[in-house]
Design a binder for these strands. Sequence first.
DNA 1: GCGTGCTGTCGAAGCGCTTCGACAGTGTGA
DNA 2: TCACACTGTCGAAGCGCTTCGACAGCACGC
Lengths: 336, 336
Amino acid sequence: MVKIDDVARHAGVAPSTVSYVLSGKRTISEQTRERVMRSVRTLGYHPHAGARALASNRSNVVALVVPLRSGIHVPVIMQFATSVVTEARTFDHDVLLLTQDEGVAGLQRVAGTSLVDAIIVMDVELHDNRLPALRALKRPAVLIGVPEDASGLTCIDLDFTAAGAVCLNHLAGNGHRRVALIGSPPEVYKRETGFATRLLGGFRQAAGQRRVKVSAYPCEPTEAAAKAVVEKLMAERPRVTGVVIHNESIIGHVLNAFAHKGAQVPDDISVVAICPDEQAEQARPSLTSVAIPADELGRSAVRMLMGELARGEHVSSTTLLPPKLTERQSTAMLVG
Amino acid sequence: MVKIDDVARHAGVAPSTVSYVLSGKRTISEQTRERVMRSVRTLGYHPHAGARALASNRSNVVALVVPLRSGIHVPVIMQFATSVVTEARTFDHDVLLLTQDEGVAGLQRVAGTSLVDAIIVMDVELHDNRLPALRALKRPAVLIGVPEDASGLTCIDLDFTAAGAVCLNHLAGNGHRRVALIGSPPEVYKRETGFATRLLGGFRQAAGQRRVKVSAYPCEPTEAAAKAVVEKLMAERPRVTGVVIHNESIIGHVLNAFAHKGAQVPDDISVVAICPDEQAEQARPSLTSVAIPADELGRSAVRMLMGELARGEHVSSTTLLPPKLTERQSTAMLVG
DNA sequence: GCGTGCTGTCGAAGCGCTTCGACAGTGTGA
DNA sequence: TCACACTGTCGAAGCGCTTCGACAGCACGC
């Protein structure tokens, strides 16, 4: 293994000079820098991560805690994870993958051993049991999702409350007076997952203001469940003309179920979805939708973390990205 | 931060004794062990990962390289990744997430800096450009997938050749003489992704032996593409009675398309899929399928790595898990 | 009673890097 | 021309852990 002393000798400088060339933490003459860099390249020098972490008290690794829970759409998680990895790399950081089932112990382990400099936690519940640990950690953390009490924490998420309202308002603006929400499985609401609960809240509140009659139908992520929900909906509320779908897994199935029952989208039923843009564009008909900006969330989370690490001080904040509704073929003005 | 010297002082022993208690690398009296462990717990000691890595030349981290490519079913990747993380934790290791787009440079970086002890690479192509680097690395690596030349490498995968044969034979055994394969998008075959190419090969070879007429239809992972492929298939080969689907994303769409065209499964068309068991069970009708054992692959990959790390010597090997076909409702004896 | 072989513990020497203070050498302003 | 402030580089002191060799203390067999 080639080490910093080898590079120093090869370039005819002190080891500390090599270190400063590589870190840029002190000014080095262009000439020396060149010489050192050439040595680094010809020798194929890679600084030892452990040694670096020990001496600098920085591992250049961030932890990413991903959910394994039911009711969470896997492609969105994956998209988020890759955007975190990609963005972290631009800051010369790597990403350690943790699963949620290690829970609080996992957080304490990776933070306590200085394995990671910072932590990103996905799928935060309203009353998440990891919150106290996260507050106590002496490392920056960003939560994706907003718990009920976000004090002392840094959170970022799509503004699901506003998203719920935007969907309702779009339908109401098109004249729909009876609207249904087809959502996540019941257990997601039971455990008070932030995004589901908040969207439903925003949806209901806007409906109250607009005097629109609404109803909510939780739904398991299977084709059969989607079909059953549509049938139930059409039987119980035959006069519903607008539907909001907040459950990526069943969007296609719901559309098929409507078609099967002879309900044309958008002629008989207008549909708005909350899902990644890509999915909305691929659906037939293409879906009016509020985008889930997984990519942007991942990038922002990393940037916030890097900001805190650079500044060395913690400021609690909550960032809610405004929902962006894109109108496509699945919604129309209510006629008659 | 509490360090090993603090623990040693608290327990009234030497730092080295604490280290040996924690690592178990030397015999320690039960009495001393107890005392040290108590101190560890009361002080809340967590050994510094970097210091440990520096001194022991082991980081206790394995790298996992995941694909970002099109044509690869995301839930399977995710399932695999979580099984790797879970299994690695049972060996007291963590998992560093790398994306494929860092390519060879990424492998060299994490291995060269001693950030990781070992590497798992998913989605290996027949002529993967990372193979030379992986052979040259002085760290254990396990490939998921089998390249054409696997010499010097450790590989594990489902035996896709056998899987292709098993599917064909199951249909042939049920009397089907004309069978089609609906597969991955064309680019997957073009870049010679192992699993797609091998399955097709096994399928064709078995067909030759059984004197079954076969045809292959690549398919993009969209509902529209699936529908189009089914229509094309039924127009071009109206006498096909058996279909193998090797493309998890479109299974549901293909079934719907058949239904839409009035072809009953399994009465008119028998369908075999290659997909996770869970997905096969949820489909309607439930699908006769060859399982993709993502979980087992992940676990095995980690175990092989840990074995190599423990032994300290490299032995090249290729492990092919035998395909397991489970008969469900989507296949039937050909009548008439 | 003495050599021999264990067991359990200790002390010290690193592992490879960063960073701090020191200090030549050079340029600047009075 | 001299004091002074920069610039660029060096040397040495750690960072917190593991591991090697050493060595007391004890049991055993002769």
